[in-house]
Measured scan of single mutants.
Amino acid sequence: MDVFMKGLSKAKEGVVAAAEKTKQGVAEAAGKTKEGVLYVGSKTKEGVVHGVATVAEKTKEQVTNVGGAVVTGVTAVAQKTVEGAGSIAAATGFVKKDQLGKNEEGAPQEGILEDMPVDPDNEAYEMPSEEGYQDYEPEA
């Protein structure tokens, strides 16, 4: 019985440690998101679009440190934060509304985080759909 109880105690310690790591990862992701939003706020009209992409990228980098179902929630929060940063930029006159959601080359930025393969159960990952990809044929 002692062996059984000791095993359960060790398992509990492992769960607590994993929860603490997840909590730490979420806190880091939130900190990076805040950094990115402050970065966007300090940019001029020309830099705002690039700044919004930076927020998304920093958040995406930190999301990889967070495991399990938390990833889905962090990704949703990050996307809403990026959308909010863009709205703030438009409201303050840093950028025109028609410039939001495009990178410096004018290509749409939507789907940055949505296409990231995420499995809350950590069982399997699927690649994003290939609808947006084109076949590449090298020139002879």
Rank of each mutant, 00 (worst) to 15 (best):
V3H: 04
F4C: 01
M5C: 01
M5G: 01
K6Y: 04
G7Y: 07
L8T: 00
S9Y: 15
K10Q: 04
A11P: 00
K12P: 00
E13D: 05
E13K: 06
V15H: 00
V15G: 00
V16K: 06
A19N: 00
E20A: 13
K21I: 11
K21E: 00
T22Y: 05
T22I: 11
K23Q: 07
K23I: 02
K23F: 07
Q24T: 15
Q24L: 08
G25C: 08
V26Y: 15
A30K: 02
A30S: 03
G31S: 12
G31N: 12
K32M: 11
K34G: 02
K34C: 07
E35N: 13
G36N: 15
G36P: 01
V37I: 05
V40W: 03
V40E: 00
S42E: 13
K43S: 03
T44D: 00
E46K: 05
E46S: 10
G47D: 09
G47W: 10
V49S: 10
V49P: 02
A53M: 14
A53H: 11
T54M: 15
V55T: 02
A56L: 13
E57I: 10
K58M: 15
T59M: 03
Q62K: 07
V63L: 11
N65K: 06
G68F: 12
A69F: 09
A69R: 13
V70T: 02
G73E: 04
V74H: 01
T75H: 15
V77N: 01
A78S: 03
A78P: 02
K80H: 07
K80R: 08
V82W: 13
G86C: 14
G86P: 06
S87Y: 06
S87T: 07
I88Q: 03
A89Y: 11
A90H: 10
A91S: 04
A91L: 13
T92E: 04
F94E: 02
F94R: 01
L100K: 04
L100Y: 02
E104P: 09
E105P: 04
G106R: 06
A107I: 03
A107G: 10
P108A: 04
Q109A: 02
Q109G: 03
Q109T: 10
E110Q: 06
G111K: 09
I112Y: 05
L113Q: 15
E114I: 12
P117D: 06
P117S: 04
P117I: 05
P120C: 07
E123D: 13
Y125E: 06
M127C: 07
P128R: 10
P128Q: 07
S129V: 08
S129D: 10
S129G: 08
E130S: 04
E130Y: 10
E130L: 07
E131W: 06
D135I: 12
Y136S: 14
Y136P: 08
E137N: 04
P138M: 07
A140S: 10
A140W: 11
